[in-house]
């Protein structure tokens, strides 16, 4: 077992876990997005989907615990590595200038993943408070899932926070997705371009996809 602990506490091991948890969370995003798209199909279909899902008590419990573990692992490692990386350079440079030609990168602050990560965390907490726990904006007894979604998404705070949250999430993914492959050693001249493209497209799809729900709720409902 020693070898496992040693590997997981090494800098490379932490990156593996970061990458794997990140990619698995990406998988969750896809299923979540796919489910939500039923909102556009119709109230009946969406309600049916939501009810069927909620009936799978055991499955749901496993999924929720699994997601929670993935999320917490990703988060803890982010905090630990960020702290370690900060202490690897205690005194900063007076002048910083990138040698990479990409103008985009100068726009990205140094601790980009950290900042976007923290914003996404805030967004997810708000999302859970709204939808999972129903604390902030509780609806009437026996409200159908479709009505609940529309009601919550039309709330001005939710609306703004969600749009901002998913856009920031998109930025997080635009680096995170392809970065996970590099961390796992999956780099190959044949596929690198494809992975980069897939990462960017995935980020755009997730951001646009999830942003479409509050927009739809406000404009068309």
């Amino acid at each position: 077992m020693n070898w496992l602990i040693r590997a997981l506490s090494s800098s490379l091991g932490k990156k593996y876990v970061m990458g794997i948890t990140g990619l698995l969370l990406c998988g969750f995003l896809i299923t979540h997005l796919a489910g939500n798209l039923l909102l556009f199909v119709g109230a009946e279909e969406f309600n049916h989907y939501a009810h069927t899902l909620h009936e799978q008590k055991a499955l749901l419990a496993v999924a929720e615990v699994g997601l929670f573990v993935l999320f917490v692992a990703h988060l803890i490692l982010a905090v630990v590595t960020t702290w370690e990386n900060k202490s690897a350079r205690k005194q900063d440079y007076d002048v910083n200038q990138s040698k990479q030609g990409t103008p985009l990168l100068t726009f990205f602050p140094h601790n980009w993943m950290w900042i976007t990560g923290v914003i996404v965390l805030g967004f997810i907490l708000l999302h859970l408070v709204d939808f999972r726990l129903g604390i902030r904006n509780p609806g009437p007894e026996g409200e159908e899932p479709f009505d609940k979604a529309v009601r919550l998404l039309r709330d001005p705070i939710t609306f703004c926070a969600y749009i901002a949250g998913v856009i920031v999430l998109g930025f997080h993914l635009s680096h995170g997705f392809s970065s996970a492959f590099q961390s796992l050693g999956l780099s190959h001249p044949k596929y690198n371009k494809f992975i980069k493209c897939a990462g960017t497209s995935f980020a755009v799809i997730v951001a646009v996809g999830f942003a479409s729900f509050p927009l739809w709720a406000v404009l068309f409902q």
Binding site: S11, T81, E84, S98, Q100, S178
Partner: peptide, 20 residues
Amino acid sequence: VAKMDEEKFGSCTNTGECEA
């Protein structure tokens, strides 16, 4: 790698500044 960690270098975030 164990030595590299012990020497208190940070870890890679795939930013690519090193290569440049």
